[in-house]
Amino acid sequence: MSRKHPIVAITGSSGAGTSTVTETFEQIFRRESITSTIVHGDSFHRFDRFEMKRVFNEATAAGIAPPSHFGPEANDFTSLEKLFEQYGKDGTGRIRNYVHDEDEAFEFGCDPGTFTPWEDLEAQTDLLYYEGLHGAVKTDDVDIAKHVDLCIGVVPIINLEWIQKIHRDHSKRGYSTEDVTDTILRRMPDYVHYICPQFTNTDINFQRVPLVDTSNPFDARWIPTLDESMVVIRFANPRGIDFPYLLSMIEGSFMSRANAIVVPGGKMELSMQLIFTPMIWRLVENSRKARGLTGLRSPSIA
């Protein structure tokens, strides 16, 4: 953790909805005039799309379990930790991007399925923002979580997570339900050992719980809407959280435990704005003061 150069990490499984949370944070950054470096977790995959296919085929031919994007064999955890450590120390580091599709290929000038060249971070940013699968990973070799100043887990219940992944991969990536199902099954050991344990290391978890039947996620015809859901928000350390204020501002909310508030799904973005804006404001205000810069104005929720 770093007072001068804070790191915020959003971590969640494939299909969890971390991209939606990132949109909320981008709104906060724009409104509060905060400069951020945004890092996407898939840029720290070990293999590009074509190399991953080769590694997969070789492992399958040899009769062994191929690596998955959830585990350490297919990810460069060491370089990710090095980035977090370096940024926390002096606000520098090196990043790249993974090119997903033709639109990004046009933007970055690289073929889909490849990585852009490594480049230096933009100088003098207020914070580093990470979105991906491994923002709070701890293994015998690395401890990424210890470098993060604010870590948020996005954790829909697993049937909803699978529904969201199946629909996304089918509509945006052209995969069949059978292909996605095979991926889910193949990744399960790494899911259990590397994804789930992170949510013990997070500061706040957002867990969306649908109020409609999701018994068979592999045959669901649509994704439950936010209005068909409730969201459980768990704080690892509830000290300093103004629960009476949140309850008064979020209609239909209630506390289920001393460190958890439950809100209607349609109020999830409002909840994030109310919770995260003062947290980000304090991190950046302290950072700017530590760097001898002018502090922020008072935070706004507009």
Rank of each mutant, 00 (worst) to 15 (best):
R3V: 07
I10N: 00
S14D: 10
S14Y: 11
G15F: 04
G17D: 00
G17E: 03
T18S: 08
T18P: 02
T20Y: 14
V21S: 00
E23N: 13
E26V: 07
S33F: 09
I34N: 03
S36G: 12
I38H: 12
D42F: 12
F47A: 01
D48F: 02
F50C: 09
F50Q: 13
M52S: 11
M52N: 07
E58M: 14
A62R: 15
I64R: 13
S68P: 06
H69K: 13
H69T: 12
G71D: 01
A74P: 02
F77E: 01
T78K: 09
T78S: 10
L80F: 05
L83D: 01
E85Y: 12
E85I: 10
E85N: 11
Q86G: 07
Y87R: 08
Y87F: 12
G88H: 03
G91M: 13
G91T: 14
T92M: 13
G93S: 12
R96Q: 08
D103G: 14
E104K: 05
A105F: 03
A105I: 07
F106Y: 08
E107P: 03
D111M: 04
T114S: 03
T114I: 05
P117M: 08
A123I: 03
L128Y: 06
L128C: 10
Y129M: 12
E131Y: 02
G135C: 07
D140E: 15
D143Q: 01
D149C: 11
D149Y: 03
D149A: 14
I152C: 04
V154R: 00
V155Q: 03
P156A: 14
I158F: 08
I158N: 04
I158C: 01
L160W: 05
L160Q: 09
Q164S: 13
I166K: 00
H167C: 05
H167K: 12
R168A: 02
H170C: 12
H170D: 07
H170N: 15
Y175C: 03
T177S: 06
T183M: 07
L185A: 14
L185C: 10
Q198V: 06
F199Y: 14
F206H: 05
V209S: 00
V209P: 01
V212T: 15
S215H: 15
P217Y: 08
R221C: 10
W222M: 02
W222L: 04
I223D: 00
P224A: 00
P224M: 05
E228F: 08
V232T: 15
N237I: 04
P238H: 05
G240H: 09
P244H: 10
P244A: 06
S248I: 07
S248F: 12
N259R: 06
A260E: 15
V263L: 10
E269Q: 13
S271W: 01
I275R: 03
T277A: 05
V284W: 02
N286P: 11
S287H: 08
R288D: 06
K289R: 15
R291H: 14
G292P: 07
L293H: 15
S298E: 10
S300N: 04
A302M: 14
A302Q: 12
